[in-house]
Design a protein around this nucleic acid. Structure first.
Lengths: 341, 341
DNA sequence: ATAATTTAGGCAATCGATTGCAATTGCAAA
DNA sequence: TTTGCAATTGCAATCGATTGCCTAAATTAT
């Protein structure tokens, strides 16, 4: 390869016998430049195949039109949708997206955030890893005056924008729906309680039971069942009880709900007649299982867009704004696995 | 917000009564610096909360440890897996990933590529949009000495690394498998023939038929059926024929295969007994449909890793290397929808 | 003790674009 | 004809880190 030097504004300036500053002004469409000169510069730049050096420009201007994103896993439906929605918004504004995945590891999350800080990105969007640790790295982001927007899994103590689903409400409604369908002993599959989203879902479940005058039974709450396998295992255990549940709310994920479906079906238990099932997330597959799975849609693409809008809005009036929490209302999607009326 | 200035190496230098160059050398672990001084600088830097300005560093060093990725849609299973695999590799090397989605639009693809060129990324990884156009933008990338790696959907004329699946072979094997299962009239759902991946799949299908002594029938090839709905529609049409097919190979996607499943089931046709079905991509849901769908795994995460490795390998010995095409061997995953023996 | 090296650190240019300020030119008003 | 002002353009500093070259001090060899 011939390391042919890229053309800079100096090359253009030299060719046209102008000063680099004039070229710069012409290219940035400044009004302090003659229209003819501007046209000439533009034409020459195109001929010489000029492409701005964003690094130099950003360095001088002291800002980097880039938003960093840190998510546990890029290839998880929910997160890739968030990114897709976010990209939609940032692209329109000419901003770039830099992506890191933490793989649910705190150390990698820290590394990723630091790399983004080094790049002086204008904002960082994050959903924290399941493996938790100190949030110093996030505090650093704030100290450096970089916009920080947390979503879904957030550190509550940090004063930042937060975009979350109303997990409490969603779980409340799902539970209420199961009750309305006539289920009487509703079990809950819980996620790791260190993550507040799972705590909230549990609280919603409990509140719904109480409001409807049902007892809240410890034995019907099954901890840490957030994969298909663990969901299936939990189902087996629950169904072995002396008085087993007649519905299972897999508040952790649709994958857990799928495990419930498979385990119950394997035992010859009919869904929804004998056992009601509800999942969480509205994964694409929930529509096509048999029976289809009742679940909760989180409007992930919308959420990504909201995050983007929040960032730009905040950039404009950056002072004296209260860092608020935006709640995206999730929606219960009722399907066959819980409809027996 | 107080726009508190970030600490630079000059701040550290001043505090320690050193030259900025020494600070720089200490931080970059140069050997032209005394061990004690180095330790002192490191300590002070930590105290002053120093974080390198990557823009300045990259500008000076004339390179940007970043790889740009342009894909049609970030939130498509295949692509998000590619990105996840790629990230795995780039992260280890301290490289960043900048992501753009073209939304299948050529214009947006061009914009994305240009933005990446401006940033002087060290490489661009791309899978082109369905809406095709000139490939000038990609030629520009090459002219500017930026690594270009195409994957999956590639422009063949361009001399770049290409990482693709062996679509021909996969389709060949899928068709052969259907024949071995005793199916005699195998229909094909084709994708847009402008994209060579779909042409290759069609060729593999035809070759398998010929090799096994089967006639190649135009009426059994159905164009542009690459969504669930179009797949269902195609199925209805095909099954209305005087002598309908006894198997359908949805070479476009698993979504099309799902459409086949639904349309056939709705007509009361039993799968796999009366109709064999095979999809493409091994989407997660293919495992859980009833019956489960035979499909082709593309090893997307692996593919992403391969792309990353290729990039770094190529960076090291950048001259006189032949731009080759890497074929990832896809694998036929046989499930219930095609097993009747 | 003196010369030859080695080591540590400073100076200043550089990467490429931007921008405040100064300088020049042209044109209109007085 | 002279002054004033606006419109263009140039000059040079700047963003922050890196690096080739040079100098001074310290170490080793002779």
């Amino acid at each position: 390869m011939k390391p042919q030097k890229r053309t800079t504004i100096y090359d253009i300036a030299q060719k046209l016998n102008l000063a680099a500053s004039s070229v710069s002004r012409a290219l940035s469409n400044s009004d302090k430049i003659n229209a003819e000169t501007k046209a000439l510069v533009l034409k020459t730049a195109a001929e010489m195949n000029y492409q701005q050096n964003a690094m130099a420009s950003n360095l001088r201007k002291g800002n980097n039109p880039t938003i960093g994103v840190v998510v546990p896993r890029i290839n998880q439906y929910f997160f890739s949708n968030i990114i897709a929605g976010l990209e939609e918004v940032t692209f329109k504004k000419g901003y770039n997206l830099v992506i890191c995945q933490s793989n649910e590891l705190h150390a990698r999350e820290v590394e990723g955030v630091n790399a983004l800080v080094n790049q002086h990105v204008s904002g960082i969007v994050i959903s924290i890893a399941a493996e938790q640790g100190s949030s110093n790295h996030l505090q650093q982001v704030l100290d450096r005056n970089i916009q920080l927007i947390q979503f879904d899994r957030v550190v509550e103590e940090l004063e930042t924008f937060k975009v979350v689903n109303d997990n409490y409400k969603a779980a409340y409604e799902a539970t209420k729906h199961l009750i309305e369908q006539g289920y009487r002993r509703i079990a809950l599959l819980e996620g790791p309680q260190e993550l507040h989203i799972f705590r909230e879902r549990k609280e919603g479940y409990i509140a719904a039971l109480k409001d409807q005058g049902f007892p809240v039974l410890e034995e019907l709450m099954y901890a840490n069942a957030w994969t298909k396998e663990l969901g299936a295992l939990a189902t087996v255990k629950l169904l072995e009880m002396v008085s087993p549940p007649d519905a299972i709310f897999a508040s952790t994920s649709d994958f857990a709900a799928l495990g419930v479906l498979e385990a119950a079906t394997a035992k010859g238990i009919r869904i929804p007649e004998e056992l009601g099932v509800c999942g969480y997330s509205n994964e694409p597959f929930t529509e096509i299982t048999s029976p289809s799975i009742t679940t909760i849609d989180q409007f992930s693409v919308e959420m990504g867009k909201t995050i983007g809008n929040l960032h730009f809005q905040e950039m404009e009036n950056s002072d004296a704004v209260i860092k608020k929490t935006v709640n995206i209302k999730p929606k219960l999607i009722v399907r066959k696995s819980s409809q027996r009326l």
